[in-house]
Structure formats: structure tokens, C-alpha cells
Design a protein around this nucleic acid. Structure first.
Length: 319
DNA sequence: CGCCTTTGACCAGCGC
DNA sequence: GCGCTGGTCAAAGGCG
């Protein structure tokens, strides 16, 4: 395994399962989207389903700060009672092998990104995409999850509730991207129609039920699809925190002024992003971290803030 | 010694 | 009801 993170491209795209979502959600149609021209209707339904009081503009501006050339796609499962479907399982990883229509995925992207092509990667295989059905109307209450065992009888009629998820695609050679948190792998499964396995991770912090799923796109092996589920109820481990610029643009965070970034990977990321299309201030960082010593891979927080920020913005906060 | 990965088995949901 | 598939468990092993 290599410790280096290279060529990081992050793709975000919005995915929300709106039950009766008309065909207007087709990705092709959204190819023209960009954060500033994002389809209002989609936004609304998205927000509504999230029940998040946040202002979209803040989000948009946040993403809008991305390097001009970055290609970003994120997907979010906003429905707290969301029930994964097959297609989504295939795409973003979901539970239960249900059917699923994977083509209704609204997309949010930054300017200059070519959504259609990339989004295709994500939703590419709806091979047996059936219709997904939604049901369930329990109240979501994160947290509870310790008593679910495989071989044991489970609680009465309690259903396993799944938290909203946030997925994004990153161009990287490493499967498991450092994000500042500590994870323990608890499973790996082969993905249907894909030669690449999917790994399941869980935040090791006690009481934190955040899960993470990592898989490589079978369409484009250079792309890694990471899906977060839940929100951390604790801060990033002190030993792991530090530079968390990660995939977010410099403007969103305090630039590593003064000192060299201990994580050249970031630099690579920025360079990559900037170089791609770019004309944005590119060597802001590139001149700094020329050298560094290799740290253990566990000490390379990359996308920590991604989790800190995205969930906070999109995920339904518990009362 | 503690923490983590590996790995096969098992479980749950859905389609047929 | 059976079979498929994704998701999870937990025992065993690995590594610092």
C-alpha cells in the first residue's frame, strides 16, 4: 500500500431519494448545473427532505470556493429513514440488496466540472436497476446500534435505521483516504459488477457510530468513492488533527502560511486541482512543503473537515 | 499488549 | 419461499 495521496479530485454530487421525484432529475439535465446555477427545485426538495435550516447559499458559496477546475460530485442520502437500494448499493453502497433506480441523482457540481461523464461513473451501473420503493416512517434516532448482532436475535420489531450519508468521489491511488479520524475496518465485500472490493470502516471512538464505506470505481479505477454515514459526536483525535485543508479550497480554511504543510498530499491535491483548469492562485502552497518526512499513514489527516463540515451542513441534526 | 486487518459466516431486505 | 446481494459480526492473525 502506498502512503501517498496523489491526484486527488473530488467529486460531489447530490443524491436524495425523493420518493416521487419526476424524471427531471436526470443527470444529463443537470450537467448544466453548477453551484450558482443549481436547480432551485432540487435544492428545495433536498433541503426539505433534510429538514436542515441551513441556507443553501452558504453551502453553495462554500463549494463555490473550490478551485475552478475541480470536479466535484457529492451524493447525500438525506432521508433519515432512507432505505438503500440495489442500484445505490452498487453506486454508493447501500444496505439490503434491494432494487433501485440509480438514475435519479441530482448533481451539484462546481463550475467547469464535467458532471455528466463523471456522474455516469457513479450511476453507471444500474444494470438491474429496478424501482426503489420507500417505506418506513420511524423516527430517526441515531445512536442506538450497539445491540445489533449478526447471529443474535435482535430487538423486537425494531428496524435498523440508517443515517443519512454523504458520498464523494476522489481521484486517488489510495483507497482509504485519511480524514483525521480513526477508523477500524470491519468488513470487506466484493461489489457486484466491479472487480474492486468495498471496504467498511467504523469510527473507533466509542459511542460514535459513524461508518464509512470505501470502494473504487469500476468505471474509473483511479476514482475512489467514499461514503460517510452519520456524524461524529466527538472532535477529531488530537493526535490526528492538524492540517485538515483536505479537499476543500484554501479559502475555506486557513492556509498553511508560515509553515510547510506536513502533508504534501494536500499540496498535490491543490496543484492538481489548480493545474487542471486552473488559473486560481496555484502556487500558494506548492512552494511550501517541498520536503517533509514521512509520517505514519495514520497521521495524515486529509479530509477531516469534510466530515465536520458536510454533515453539519447537510445532515439532519438531532434535536 | 493493544489496536488493527483479514476473512468466512451469518443476517436482513428485496426480487422473482 | 428461495436465492441474490449488501452489510455486519467476530475469531484469528498481524504489526508496532
Amino acid at each position: 500500500m502506498s502512503d501517498e495521496h496523489r491526484d486527488h479530485h473530488v467529486y460531489y454530487h447530490d443524491l436524495f431519494h425523493d420518493n416521487q421525484k419526476p424524471a427531471s432529475n436526470n443527470i444529463a439535465g443537470s450537467s448544466a448545473y453548477n453551484l450558482q446555477g443549481f436547480d432551485p427545485s432540487s435544492y428545495i426538495s433536498f433541503t426539505e427532505s433534510l429538514q436542515a435550516p441551513m441556507d443553501y447559499n452558504s453551502l453553495a458559496s462554500a463549494f463555490g470556493l473550490s478551485p475552478p477546475s475541480s470536479e466535484v460530485f457529492s451524493s447525500i442520502e438525506s432521508n433519515p429513514n432512507y432505505k438503500p437500494t440495489t442500484a445505490e448499493v452498487a453506486d454508493l453502497g447501500g444496505g439490503g440488496g434491494g432494487g433501485g433506480g440509480g438514475s435519479d441523482i441530482p448533481v451539484v457540481s462546481t463550475p467547469n466540472s464535467s458532471i455528466s461523464s463523471s456522474s455516469t461513473e457513479i450511476g453507471a451501473e444500474e444494470d438491474s436497476g429496478k424501482s426503489k420503493k420507500d417505506r418506513l416512517s420511524k423516527e430517526v434516532e441515531d445512536g442506538g446500534e450497539s445491540s445489533k448482532k449478526v447471529g443474535k436475535g435482535k430487538k423486537k420489531g425494531e428496524k435498523k435505521l440508517r443515517e443519512p450519508r454523504f458520498a464523494f468521489m476522489t481521484k486517488s491511488e489510495v483507497d482509504h483516504l485519511e480524514d483525521g479520524y480513526r477508523w477500524r475496518k470491519y468488513g470487506q465485500k466484493a461489489v457486484k459488477n466491479s472487480p474492486y472490493p468495498r471496504s467498511y470502516y467504523r469510527c473507533t471512538t466509542q459511542k460514535c457510530g459513524v461508518k464509512k464505506r470505501v470502494e473504487r470505481s469500476f468505471q474509473d479505477p483511479s476514482v475512489v468513492i467514499t461514503t460517510y454515514e452519520g456524524q461524529h459526536n466527538h472532535p477529531v483525535p488530537a493526535t490526528l488533527r492538524g492540517n485538515a485543508a483536505g479537499i476543500f479550497p484554501p479559502s475555506m480554511f486557513t492556509p498553511p502560511t508560515g509553515g510547510a504543510t506536513p502533508f504534501p498530499h494536500h499540496q498535490d491535491l491543490f496543484q492538481m486541482m489548480n493545474s487542471q483548469g486552473g488559473s486560481a492562485g496555484s502556487n500558494m502552497y506548492s512552494q511550501q512543503n517541498q520536503q517533509y518526512h514521512h509520517h505514519h499513514h495514520h497521521q495524515l489527516p486529509d479530509y477531516g473537515l469534510l466530515q465536520d463540515i458536510i454533515p453539519a451542513m447537510f445532515f439532519k441534526q438531532e434535536p
